[in-house]
Design a protein around this nucleic acid. Structure first.
Lengths: 347, 347
DNA sequence: TGTTAGCACTCCTAAGAACTGAGTGCTAAA
DNA sequence: TTTAGCACTCAGTTCTTAGGAGTGCTAACA
């Protein structure tokens, strides 16, 4: 295990490296006020820390930089989440005080505020529709052949799509059918709707609804696409990351941007299985092109369940203490704003 | 004016530079089969072309590169649009043959196909809603206080938003009101709806509708946001442009990406006032960060009117003849696909 | 008179050499 | 156990040099 002094030195090295991005030498550390030892002592300790794998040396005559293991130890044991500065709070409130009538806008703004406050890239995953519960279903006929279906969920999402009206079916038929569905399906998870109809509702429907086959076809038109819908991803601050010295190489920029064009890959990055703030450092991400990046993410809730997440992507040398504090606060804030939003919609 | 030989040489220089990205010397040109002159002759002509401003020399002992004026002349007088290769056609058809039920998908796919075929960045502006005509209006009550408004346009766009139901109003009131609006406003441009109601319809409404003030408030909730809606922008192939040697400098990449984060700026880039394919070379774009880029764009139509545009952004040294041919074809193709789509929706 | 060959000149680029300085490891003294 | 001192290492910078692509100019040629 590490001695207190070793921890102190490791902390100092990482803190310094995070701001300077340059390998830090023993003299730099010994000059700090919090450290009462000479450069030579520091050197000995740093040599030990390197041997244990917490520090690395780019080349013999350079200073030390933290290794992945070093960062991990720092995040787990040394770091204290940084409280908000007045400026942060001001900036946040000035942007989020607007009254939103639009869920999209809430996510967009949250994402962009975070990237502004951190100067890293921010990724937000909006809730997947399949995880929501059905609030209201409606079909509006446009012409003889076409109609628009409207699906509203408990989270206030509205899904609308064009559907084809089967040949032998009247407006009255549809209304009747949709009425029954509304009564019976309300409150169910979107992902369960299909089986609910096929298993439990089918008998009742056969009794009360004409042209049942056509109607089921209609229903599938409405529901099938929702499951396939890809996760909604909000990105902000892509360019900010280019200010970081580790992205001076165009190749790295390219491989990162390539990654960002794939929505699916992004989701995986930010998705978190645990509760609370999660930190993935360097290769812990298992994706080549962000081997030198870290991701700090957390989930937000709707109805007490995690439904989406926000994450910050920066170099491994990122300001963990600031970002962790921020993500922790904002994921909770997002949860409560979503609750208010939902209450505003449906009470 | 330029002699035939000068045109020949200018063409050869530009063609060569477009593929090589390296200043081209007199010897390179004289070796080409189509040119029957010695390097010395070419040198003389090139000196003349430089004097006239069609070519530039990075430094005394380097070859020549085309100037902006050179490219302009090339585009206007020398270039022949390149027909599609079999491979292009195959790739295009394999991606576009899918049956779309979703306008968004049509734009997204078109954008991505173009960026794949050209290897440059592609920008598509979807039609602005204000320019569409009203097809159908509907209000669905959700609760006592809230409702969802659905606006369908002639182009098949569906706009949906949450609105607040004024206190003293019943469902019946709303239905009556919306019915009248539907009858009277159908076919009008979205941008004209407000004045139409305030100028022409107000008397009739006062006669048949209760709580007219509340109703107008409702109407404004539905309509006001549509006008403000920013233009929908589809981007694809952002990273492809990083393969171009002119983007090896991270600063250039950054300033370009910064530009791309502003939707408004992008719209201006691609928006075209004229019909047919439009080419803007280098500083003709009036935007600092793309001084070394060219944009080739064209509009597509709905109901015979240009409503949006597609554009390709590449270095000034881009393959004009290929891209022009492609954009010309695809803008027309998009027009016809949109027509089919609209017919599918409303006949 | 237009075209071409020849030659001296320019200047970018790459490769090497020399220098600098930050930082280390090790040893010996406090 | 800590610290001061010193020799050593090595990345980065600057300077120099050689090479080569390309030019402009002149004179000869058809």
């Amino acid at each position: 295990m590490l001695t207190e002094r070793q921890k102190l030195i490791l902390l100092a090295v990482i803190d310094d490296y995070i701001t300077s991005a340059v390998p830090v030498g023993s003299r730099t550390i010994s000059k700090k006020k919090s450290i009462g030892y000479s450069a030579a002592t520091i050197r000995n300790e740093m040599a030990d820390l390197e041997e244990m794998g917490f520090l690395e040396q780019p080349h013999t005559s350079a200073g030390r930089i933290p290794s992945q293991k070093g960062y991990r130890f720092y995040v787990d044991h040394l770091l204290t989440p940084q409280p908000w500065t007045e400026n942060d709070i001001f900036q946040y409130e000035s942007q989020s005080s607007i009254e939103f009538d639009d869920l999209e806008e809430i996510f967009r703004q949250t994402t962009s505020v975070i990237s502004e406050l951190t100067n890293y890239m921010t990724i937000t995953l909006a809730p997947k529709m399949v995880e929501h519960r059905l609030k209201h279903l409606q079909v509006i006929p446009l012409t003889e052949r076409y109609a628009v279906s409207i699906v509203v969920t408990n989270t206030g999402y509205v899904d609308q799509r064009r559907i084809v009206v089967p040949k032998n079916v009247t407006v009255g038929n549809i209304e009747q059918f949709v009425n029954i569905l509304n009564h019976r399906l309300q409150g169910l998870r979107m992902s369960k709707l299909k089986t609910a109809v096929e298993k439990k509702l089918i008998e009742e429907l056969k009794r009360y609804v004409d042209h049942i086959e056509s109607m089921l076809d209609l229903f599938h038109q409405i529901i099938d696409q929702i499951g396939k819908e890809e996760e909604r991803v909000y990105l902000s601050g892509t360019t900010r990351i280019l200010d970081q010295p580790e992205f001076q190489d165009v190749e790295k920029v390219k491989s990162l941007l390539d990654l960002l064009e794939e929505t699916e890959a992004i989701s995986q990055l930010v998705e978190s299985d645990s509760t609370g703030v999660q930190v993935r450092i360097g290769k812990e991400n298992h994706i080549q092109s962000i081997n030198h990046c870290s991701i700090i993410s957390a989930s937000y809730m709707i109805d007490g369940e995690p439904v989406g997440s926000i994450g910050v992507l920066g170099p491994t040398r990122m300001d963990y203490s600031k970002v962790i504090g921020l993500i922790d606060f904002l994921s909770k804030d997002l949860t409560s704003r979503l609750r208010k939003w939902a209450e505003g919609s449906f009470t």
